[in-house]
């Protein structure tokens, strides 16, 4: 059995045929070829798959593609400006060394965008509570907290820096 879904991802709307059991995260990664959204668990605990659905952060492994039918999904790939400028949260992660291996990072960044949308000036403990559903094994979280604080203090997009 197959179902038709029309989903907007980072502003691009497309209609696809999917199995009803297909997870949104697999739809994004395998049908839309947007591999920035990662998978770190099979019990919805790690947050590596966090995206925004209609502006609210959600774990895309807990959502079926058919449930996203008619909705707007934003992923890490859609965050930077079309001129290559980084979103303040992206730049905060870079400035503050908020990532090491980078596997949790897209989920962390999307969750942080969600936090700042609700609360533009969160305290350290609000950030820590807000990121409770996202696990990072590398950083120990301290520099992730600093990265979110950096973004809160610099709400404008940041010109693209020199890359490696």
């Amino acid at each position: 059995m197959q179902r038709e879904v029309t989903i907007s991802v980072n502003g691009a709307t497309r209609t696809d045929t999917v199995e009803p059991r297909l997870l949104l995260v697999h739809y994004l990664r395998e049908q839309r070829r947007l591999t920035g959204t990662h998978i770190g668990c099979d019990t919805s605990n790690c947050g590596a798959c966090t995206v925004l659905i209609d502006g609210l952060s959600a774990k895309s492994c807990t959502v079926l593609a058919v449930q996203a039918d008619g909705h707007e999904v934003s992923t890490i790939e859609g965050l930077a400006g079309s001129d290559g400028s980084f979103h303040p949260v992206q730049e905060g992660f870079r400035q503050c060394h908020g990532l090491q291996c980078g596997y949790c990072t897209p989920g962390m960044i999307m969750a942080s965008v969600g936090i700042l949308a609700d609360n533009p000036h969160p305290s350290e403990s609000e950030i820590r509570m807000g990121l409770e559903g996202n696990i990072c094994r590398c950083t120990g979280y301290q520099k992730i907290v600093e990265a979110v604080q950096w973004a809160a203090a610099h709400p404008q997009p940041q010109p693209a820096g020199q890359g490696g």
Binding site: L34, L79, F86, F93, H97
Partner: peptide
Amino acid sequence: IRKEDPNLITGR
């Protein structure tokens, strides 16, 4: 700051 980061923060 790291050379590794631009790819990893943009989903690339």
